[in-house]
């Protein structure tokens, strides 16, 4: 029996942009448009568990030779590939043999997004995609095309911005809700906020 990875590669053809990794570390990089179909197909082929959905923001991913904003004092020793776009979405799937508890296959599907427009939701395939997609929206601001009214999950509704984006400074605090009635010290002003990560320590 051929693996889900090989079957998907054969079926999707040109929508598979590249593949890397072996065995349990297999990764297929797909065209964003092909993701919903690929997920449904992977499920039909036996990937019964959605292990994770996550995102990586490549805003500060600087190709070699220019130094990194996070470490202006160091030059990277390695050549870095230029990212095709800013956000990369990762779907991590597993084919689990429920009777034996053995992992038949693990497969990660990656896709690069145009702007912050994500693919359609995977909720109808795996119900846990609901929370995972809410987290990706909350932390990265990636919109899933059929979830216009998606809700934050870790942060509160009044929070402005998406904290895991690389351009959100780690120290940027927002007003404390419900406590600014004069009795308690006011929330930090902009001047008190710490500068962006690079300038944290000399």
């Amino acid at each position: 029996m051929s693996s889900v990875r090989e079957t998907l590669r054969a079926e999707l053809g040109a929508a598979v942009l590249s593949a890397r990794g072996e065995g349990l570390d297999s990764v297929l990089v797909l065209d964003a448009g092909a993701v919903p179909g690929a997920l449904a197909r992977a499920q039909a082929l036996g990937c019964n568990v959605l292990v994770d959905i996550t995102c990586v923001d490549h805003l500060r991913w600087v190709p070699a030779g220019r130094g990194t904003p996070s470490h202006p004092d160091r030059m990277p020793r390695w050549e870095l590939p230029k990212p095709p776009s800013r956000f990369k979405l990762v779907y991590r799937l597993m084919a689990l043999d429920a009777g034996q508890g053995a992992v038949r296959e693990r497969l990660a599907l990656e896709c690069w997004l145009e702007g912050d427009a994500g693919p359609a939701s995977a909720r109808s395939l795996w119900p846990n995609a609901d929370w995972l997609e809410r987290e990706v929206w909350d932390m990265f601001g990636v919109r899933f095309s059929d979830r216009p009214d998606i809700k934050r999950i870790l942060m509160y509704e009044e929070f402005v911005g998406h904290p895991l984006r690389k351009d959100y400074p780690i120290g940027k605090r927002q007003p404390l809700l419900g406590v600014d009635d004069g009795a308690a010290p006011a929330a930090l002003s902009d001047e008190e906020l710490r500068p962006s990560p690079g300038g944290k320590r000399p």
Binding site: M155, P163, Y168, I170, R173, L176, V179
Partner: peptide, 14 residues
């Protein structure tokens, strides 16, 4: 936890 999500000491609140 010196970051956007954490209250820097509860004496800011109570």
């Amino acid at each position: 936890y010196d970051n956007y999500a954490t209250v820097q000491g509860i004496d800011k609140i109570v």
